[in-house]
Amino acid sequence: MIPGSFSYHRPASVADAVKLLADLGEDARPLAGGHSLVPMMKLRLATPAHLIDLHGIAALKGIRRDGQNLVIGAMTTQHELLASDDVAKAMPILHEAALLIADPQVRYRGTIGGNVANGDPGNDMPALMMTLGASYRLESAGGARDVAAADFYQGAYFTALEPGEILTSVSVPVPAAGHGSAYEKLKRKVGDYATAAAAVVLTMSGGKVATCSIGLTNVHETPLLATDAANAVIGTSLDAATLKRAAAAAEAIMAPAADARGPVEYRKHVGGIMVTRALQRAAAVAK
């Protein structure tokens, strides 16, 4: 539980950070909150020769409104996300989900950028970002590009992030006024990853679902967008048969690993229940 030796760098700008990344190559890793990377280093499962600490870059911090989007700097902590009135008012699901991440100590250090960029299927924010239709700003020495959250995740710990790139911000479209949302997460205890979790954002019209988006956490090697399940509820009043169909459609795309949280069958089963419960709760709060 002691990391190997490494060199520590603390750039003051994104330009300096991406230059360091370009110069140092594959032996370098950017360090955000450190809650994924540092434990891996302590187990020597990760042995980067260089750590590029992003805490010195003021431009990576903060939450601002940009037209119809909230733009969240990558180094914004989960705690800062929770403290933001803009987030609480415009997208309560982000507030709700951030509260379910680990514990207060982790949330003081853990960042939104680290959470979404690491590609850990257990993290809560990636599925949420897919559900909300967010995109990520990726910057490198060669310039910047935007990638939709839905296109970012390729496999466990494999993402669209190219060598030399740093995820610098997350841009989240503000959901329609009167929308309903819910994040249902089953976990064994405080601090645990989800056994299964479902995010739902929907709008209602005349007692029927008008639009719906569903995301799933930790039931596959990547976060999932449950499109078939979402389509199955549109135009319905979420009657029992519809909920059952939606849960089944969501379970059909799940492929969780068996682990101490339970066997595959259980994790899929409760994944379906999380979808059902999130749909019901989101509909109940929609106006």
């Binding site: 514990d103 064994r188 205890k189 405080v190 601090g191 645990d192 990853y193 682990d259 101490a260």
Partner: peptide
């Protein structure tokens, strides 16, 4: 041995 850390070895907090 598959329960070598407090992630999987159930150690309840005040919440549970």
């Amino acid at each position: 041995v598959v329960t070598g850390s407090f992630m999987d070895f159930f150690m309840p907090t005040a919440v549970e």
